[in-house]
Each structure stands twice: as C-alpha cells, then as structure tokens.
C-alpha cells in the first residue's frame, strides 16, 4: 500500500518536474521561465519528498525530508525574486 502510494506520488512529482522543464525551455522570457521553474519544481519536489517519506523508517527521517523541502522552497523563492529583479533592472537599462 505504502509502495503504491510512493510510486504514485513520486510519479506525480516527476510529472511536475517535466512540466517545469518544458516551461523553462519553451517560455519566451526570464519571468515566465522563472514562474515555470520555481512553481512546478517546488511542487514536484514536494510530491517526491512526500513519496519518499512514506518509505522512511523513523520520524526523524521524515522531519529531515520536510526540512530539505522547506529549505529548497525558501531558496528557490528568494533566488527567483533576485533573478527577476536583476532581469528587470537590465530591461530598464536597455
């Protein structure tokens, strides 16, 4: 049961990663690409972490997976803002 749920959740996670990557490649400018990358990949990582958490042997491992997801979310969000601001300044300069 747990194995089935893991397969379904990680598959869902991979789907979002693929979607984010397609967005990164196909979208026309920095801002839409950032949108695809951060939103889809954070959701994908969340699904994968959830899927792996079902295989964890202790609650400490679950907590660590949660911490990894939260840190990745925080870093991706902050970096997306910084990249977007730099791109905006560059556009204004032109």
């Amino acid at each position: 049961m747990a194995d089935l749920a893991t397969i379904a959740l990680t598959a869902a996670g991979l789907f979002f990663f693929v979607a984010g990557t397609v967005g990164l490649i196909r979208f026309p400018d920095t801002f839409t690409r950032l949108h695809a990358l951060t939103k889809a990949d954070n959701l994908g990582l969340g699904f994968i972490a959830l899927g792996i958490a079902l295989q964890a042997e202790t609650w400490a491992q679950v907590a660590r997976l949660g911490l990894i997801w939260a840190l990745a979310l925080l870093a991706a969000g902050a970096m997306a803002q910084l990249v977007a601001r730099t791109a905006l300044e560059r556009e204004d300069a032109e």
């Binding site: 840190l71 925080l74 870093a75 969000g77 902050a78 803002q81 910084l82 601001r85």
Partner: peptide, 10 residues
C-alpha cells in the same frame, strides 16, 4: 527586501 529576509531565516 527578499535577500535580507532570506539572510535572516537561513
């Protein structure tokens, strides 16, 4: 800004 709060949380 974003970086300042990131620098506080991390």
């Amino acid at each position: 800004g974003v970086l300042a709060s990131f620098g506080r949380v991390l």
